[in-house]
Each structure stands twice: as C-alpha cells, then as structure tokens.
Amino acid sequence: MTMPGAFEPSPVANYLPTTAIIEEAENFTARDRYFRLSLERPLGHRPGQFVMVSVFGLGEAPISISNPPGDAPTLEMVIRNAGSLTQVLHSYGPGDAIGLRGPYGHGFDLHDFLGRDVLFICGGLGLAPLRSLIRAVIDRRGEFGRVMVISGCRTPAEEIYRPDLTAWAERGDVDIVRLVDNAANMPWKGRVGLVTEPIAGLKLDPAETVVAMCGPPVMYKFVLLELAGAGINGDRVFVDLERRMRCGVGKCGHCQINDIYCCQDGPVFRFSEIAHLKEAFL
C-alpha cells in the first residue's frame, strides 16, 4: 500500500564512522597508549570535545581529543586499556586503520579564557582532553595572563604527555607543577602530593583567574573546595566530566547527570551551571 506521507529514506550518515589511519603510536604508560591519526579532512573540533572510536566487531568507545583545533587533518588521543575494545586498540600501530565519528559534545570556549590568568588542573588521564586547550592557549600565549598547569598522577610511571610537560616548563612563561601521589621508589623530580596542594601556593588572583579541570571522579569535590577557598567563583571554573557514552548524540541515555546529557550539554561545563546537580560530583 502506498500511503501519503510514506517515504523512501535516503542513506544516512548518522552513526557511520569514517576511516582514519594511525601514523604514530607510543605507549605512554603500561595502560595508556598515545595515537596520532591522519584524517581525510580536519576534525573542525573545539578543545574538550570527544570522538567515538570504532573497531568493527568490537564496538565503539568515547575518546577525548588531545590536539588543539587547527587546519591539520590530524587527531591525537590517549587510550587507556580498560575494556574489550581498548585492549585491542593497544595492539594497533602505524598503518592500522580505525573508525571514527564526531567530534561530539560541548567543548571549551577559548573566549572564556582570553585575557585571563589560566589554571589547568589535570589528574591522571585528565591531561589528555585538557592538552587540547593547553596547547591552544600556549599557541596564543601573548593573549593570556599567567598560564599555570597542575598535573598529578598516582606514580611516576603513570604520567602521560611527559615531553609536552617538559617542553611547557622549559618555555619559562608557563608554570608547571608535576605531582605524584606516591613516588613509589621511582626516579621523580616533581612534587609528591595531591593536585589540591599546590593551589594555595600559586597565589591566584580571584578576579583574574579562570580554571579548567579534568581528572578521576574523586578529584573534583576536593579541587572545587580548594578553589572556593582561594576565592574563585564557580562561574570561572570549567570542569570536563567523564560518563558512560554509547551514542554521543544525546539519545542512548547512559551519560545522563540528573537532567542533563553529558555528551551533548558537556562534557565541559561551567561549574556554576551544574553545581546544583546532585549527581555531577561524588
């Protein structure tokens, strides 16, 4: 029966990954592997956005974008071996192909940071998404006030993007504080402690400072308390949150935090806008 209003749908691009080729891969830590991919065209992303990475037969996983926006058809990311898909990705190297769709989500807006003192607080793998913003800020260093990075991880063996942290420190115009929870008898020139500890010593100017942070779920509450103690308003703090995501387009329901969808409304949020959400922080 042909009915009024019935239609023949045309092929659709939703959910269809495109192919990207790995150009460079390197193990940052025992469980975190860095990838640089070449794409057919630039991603056109904003810092803090993510992509859905596919291996056909195993499915998809949301992965943060590590490189700053730009014209290069390149994607950098760090993938932690934490499941059936990522375990297989850890065996991939240069020349191998993976599927990609995105970018998705609401990232950082550089305008929120321009002309301000900028503090980045990164815990563990949280440096991976924040690097996209740190690099964007450093590329236009003259347009910001102080630039400070606190980067912490559990042990020296778990630090990612070491060459970047070293290079940023050597510039002289970026304050870098590297910490571990426990030096674990390994060589370590940085500090030992939690990412909350250096905040007070930075002598932040509450009127001028904007903060971007990302880390494991337990980190947020303590950092937010410390920032509040330093007089930084919630509207100057941007948090990048992790949730389970299966679709990336606000349909599958997994990333919901109270009434918002992390994949669409986030993963980057202005803290003052989600401070009331009971499920946002532990």
Binding site: G57, L58, G83, S84, L85, Q87, V88, S91
Partner: peptide, 11 residues
C-alpha cells in the same frame, strides 16, 4: 571465541 581470536576481552 571471536573475542579471543580478535585479541579482546570477552565480556
């Protein structure tokens, strides 16, 4: 078997 052949962790 598919998972193990693909080098993945069955779940």
């Amino acid at each position: 078997v598919k998972s193990l052949l693909a080098g993945s962790i069955p779940f």
